[in-house]
Design a protein around this nucleic acid. Structure first.
Lengths: 197, 197
DNA sequence: AACAAAAACAAACGATCGTTTGGTACAATT
DNA sequence: AATTGTACCAAACGATCGTTTGTTTTTGTT
């Protein structure tokens, strides 16, 4: 798969593409997509604006690349966290904690997934939506494995949980007493107890 | 209170300010703030771009006006709906249904509250945040009146519910079988049952 | 009918936007 | 050492941005 074509060559060691992606993720997460200019990104990595077009054909493609990295970051973290637990509710809680950590603390890339909506960039909205679904699939499986009361609706439970998780970005206070872990526990506990009613 | 100053005069009957606000709300809700230009808004109401500045000193002030109308619309609807019920959980559920109806179906103004974040417009972020808190106060009171188990954390419950409500905008399908009312019932029921564990 | 305020038009300002084009320095391969 | 593609620089393109300024039309008031 990684065999290069005869006309291709290995990237140079001083390639600054990673720095460009980091800066784009940070700026997109902070200001949003439309409010971030290519000049902002170029300046952040000490480049000229036009140079960005060596790596990306358009601003939208830069966003897609950030989105892809974001999905990898958040999905891997959630999956790894869930893998350390056995019991279905514990697995879900661990994944939620990992999700919150990524979005609230660790990764600008993960933040972009929540901050920038597919409809913000019509030209690539379809691709962005597909990436989003990909990262939501982890939760679909985790919720699917829960031992729920017959009447319970898994879909509503999942969407309620994801909504709570993603919206927490707008009120979470890093200086406060609440941590991603404590928050995940409380959210999941609320839903878990509703099954014992 | 409405006594006009000697130098003031009643607005003209053909005042198009309402139309401007409607168009701005619709465009802000659909594309976001940065992606909507003053020219877009002017064209939507068949005006020249510069004419908008008779009503608003800056684009940001237009957003603030839309935000204010949005808070009124959504808070009034929620409060009126809650007023028709007696039991605390029923009051909360009614308010949630009204909130969802406003955001998902009825009002472009209400959508802007969720679509455009205070941090999107630093120049007026403080004012936008204050308006947001104003509309969240309704839920603070409704959740405060719930008969909860001693161990329960009202704040977490409230934020979880608000997160679920607001995030629903991103997956709700108007053509689907779910309605704002049915969704509100399911969300609130999940939280309510957790108190009987 | 005369006047003043309201609500627009008409036209442009400088700034910034995403992007293109042509050239250049450097690192990796041969 | 020669070569070739990589990774940028330098400079500009036209388009669009929020906004301003001066003027005109329309309406309510007297």
């Amino acid at each position: 798969m990684t065999a290069k074509l005869s006309t291709a060559r290995a990237p140079r060691a001083d390639n600054r593409l990673p720095a460009v992606l980091d800066a784009a993720a940070r700026l997109f997460a902070g200001r949003g997509y439309s409010a971030t200019s290519m000049r902002d990104i170029a300046e952040a990595v000490d480049m000229l604006p036009g140079s960005l077009y060596y790596h990306f054909a358009a601003k939208e493609d830069l966003l897609v690349a950030v989105y892809e990295a974001g999905v990898r970051a958040i999905a891997d973290a959630a999956q790894a966290a869930a893998g350390r637990e056995k019991e279905p509710w514990a697995r879900l809680e661990a994944a939620c904690a990992a999700h919150l950590e990524a979005v609230l603390q660790r990764s600008d890339y993960a933040q972009v997934l929540i901050r920038v909506l597919p409809q913000d960039v019509p030209a690539v909205a379809v691709r962005l939506r597909a990436l989003r679904r990909q990262y939501e699939r982890v939760f679909r499986e985790l919720v699917g494995a829960l031992p729920l009361a017959a009447r319970a609706e898994r879909k509503v439970l999942r969407l309620m949980l994801l909504g709570a998780l993603n919206w927490s970005r707008f009120w979470f206070d890093p200086e406060g007493s609440e941590t991603p872990k404590s928050l995940a526990r409380k959210f999941v506990t609320l839903l878990k107890e509703s099954q014992n009613a």
